[in-house]
Amino acid sequence: MNANSGRVSQWFSMPMPLGKVAGLLDIDPAKAPGLVRAGRFPCRVTKVRGKYVATVGDVMEAMGIEDPVVQTDDLRAGADFAKRWD
């Protein structure tokens, strides 16, 4: 990767709350904290300000979704193109 490229997940900087992640992974949100404490949750999870969260990249990996490297200029050009149709 060069300075003008990055992974798709890097564009999503906000961590996802455990309940949302559990829903995406088809896990009962009520059981998710117990799975995290037991080390059996299928995604890497961290604790931020007392709440469990996961990054978009970790969730994508757990779901088997590829996290490709993209060129920043290509993303901007695509966004500019899409604006023409708004």
Rank of each mutant, 00 (worst) to 15 (best):
S5A: 10
L18K: 03
R44L: 12
P68V: 11
D86P: 05
F41W: 03
V70A: 05
A30R: 15
D26R: 10
D86A: 15
M1H: 14
D73F: 01
A62Q: 06
G23T: 05
A30F: 12
R37W: 10
R37Q: 14
G34P: 07
E66W: 12
A77H: 00
F12K: 09
D86R: 13
P68M: 07
F12G: 09
K83A: 02
M1D: 13
W85I: 08
G78A: 10
G23E: 07
A79M: 15
R49C: 03
Q71M: 10
T72A: 14
R40C: 10
G6M: 14
G57P: 06
A54E: 01
R44T: 09
D74H: 08
I65Q: 12
A30S: 14
R84L: 07
P17H: 03
M16D: 03
M1P: 11
P33G: 02
F12P: 09
G23D: 00
K83E: 03
F41V: 04
S9C: 09
N2S: 13
W11D: 09
G50Q: 12
I27C: 01
G78S: 14
W11F: 15
K51D: 03
R40H: 10
G64C: 08
P68S: 11
D73Y: 02
N4M: 15
L25Q: 04
N4D: 15
Q10Y: 06
V8F: 06
G50P: 12
G34K: 07
V53E: 01
W85F: 15
A3C: 11
N4V: 07
P68T: 11
K83P: 03
N2C: 08
A77Y: 00
S13E: 15
A79Y: 14
P42I: 06
P15L: 02
V53L: 00
D26P: 02
D86T: 13
R49W: 04
P68Y: 06
A32W: 02
K20M: 13
Q71A: 08
R40T: 15
G39R: 02
E66A: 15
Q10R: 08
R49F: 00
K83N: 10
E61D: 14
A3S: 14
V53R: 01
S5R: 06
T72P: 06
G39T: 09
G19Q: 09
S5V: 10
K47A: 08
M14D: 12
N2D: 12
